[in-house]
């Protein structure tokens, strides 16, 4: 199936996938002598779940960091809604509606679950320092409106019972869920998930998969996720990018990828020349 960048189509399970929202064009990223990403291009379509897979050290997290504005590639550009994106600080990227979670959980350990989630609303709140100091009128109003949104996500991800618990006291699986809540509550148009299920048991993985599908389905959020569990990737994603040693070795639907010789070699550990 060949699609234009503006075409849309309907998936087997009835979701509409739109045109390209984000495009990586010939991205190259080096750290000193290490080439983490070598001339990679791919795109992400509106409403799809796009997986990025590859062995350890392939450069997957680096790719998300480029999208987040955290790493600046030496070559290539990122197109957002068809326009080349100028160099942006991470917080500016966040303001554009791109939210993410991290491979190693990056929550605010000293704050409660509720405060962590509320922090995710920060781009939606704009009362000034003085208004907040007085806490009457707009500041209080805003706090309550945004609290309602936060509580909705907290309900959605089934973490009501730990609302007031400091994050440092939570087990790993719940932390991952809180981090997803913090990203989701900002109502992102694109959600980047770096190994959302790493280190989870089967049951937790099932829960997490369900949440990801629900997010995509209910909010129409475009999702790019990195995942090692092939079963999960094949189940969840509409399209997959495969990376190995910084290079793109495959790009297509899950069934394309399953039958791609280069991908099979990379996963079976065939020697590189």
């Amino acid at each position: 199936m060949m699609l234009d960048s503006t075409d849309s189509y309907v998936t087997e399970d009835g979701r509409t996938i739109g045109g390209v929202v984000m495009e990586m064009k010939n991205i190259t990223l080096r750290f000193g002598g290490v080439v983490a990403i070598k001339d990679i291009s791919f795109d992400i379509r509106e409403g799809e779940i796009r997986a990025i897979i590859g062995p350890n050290g392939a450069g997957k997290s680096s790719m998300l960091n480029v999208i987040s504005g955290f790493y600046v590639p030496q070559d290539g550009e990122v197109l957002f809604h068809g326009k080349p994106r100028p160099h942006m600080k991470p917080y500016e990227v966040a303001q554009q509606g791109i939210a993410r979670t991290f491979q190693n959980i990056a929550l605010f350990e000293g704050m409660t679950v509720l405060d962590n989630v509320m922090t995710g609303r920060l781009n939606k709140m704009n009362s000034g320092l003085l208004a907040q100091a007085i806490w009457r009128g707009k500041a209080e109003q805003e706090e309550i409106e945004n609290r309602e949104k936060a509580e909705k996500i907290i309900d959605f991800l089934e973490i009501q019972h730990i609302r007031k618990t400091p994050v440092a006291r939570l087990p790993y699986g719940l932390k991952k869920r809180v981090e997803l809540a913090r990203a989701l509550v900002s109502e992102p148009s694109i959600l980047l998930l770096d190994e959302p299920m790493a280190g989870m048991n089967v049951e937790e993985k099932e829960d997490m998969s369900r949440f990801i599908l629900d997010v995509n389905d209910e909010f129409g959020t475009t999702i790019a996720l990195i995942e090692h569990d092939m079963g999960v990737v094949m189940d969840l994603s509409d399209r997959v990018v495969v990376m190995d040693y910084g290079k793109k070795i495959g790009d297509g639907t899950p069934s394309d990828i399953r039958n791609n010789q280069a991908v099979i070699d990379a996963y079976l550990g065939v020697a590189h020349d």
């Binding site: 987040s68 955290f70 600080k89 991470p90 917080y91 990227v93 966040a94 303001q95 939210a99 993410r100 991290f102 990056a106 929550l107 605010f108 350990e109 000293g110 704050m111 405060d115 509320m118 922090t119 995710g120 609303r121 920060l122 781009n123 709140m125 009362s127 320092l129 907040q132 806490w135 500041a139 805003e142 706090e143 913090r182 990203a183 900002s186």
Partner: peptide, 22 residues
Amino acid sequence: GMQGRKWMAIRDMDIAAEIIGV
């Protein structure tokens, strides 16, 4: 309020704070 959360976010993990928009 939100100002305090931004401060605490910077205190607890400045990189994550920046990536979510602080």
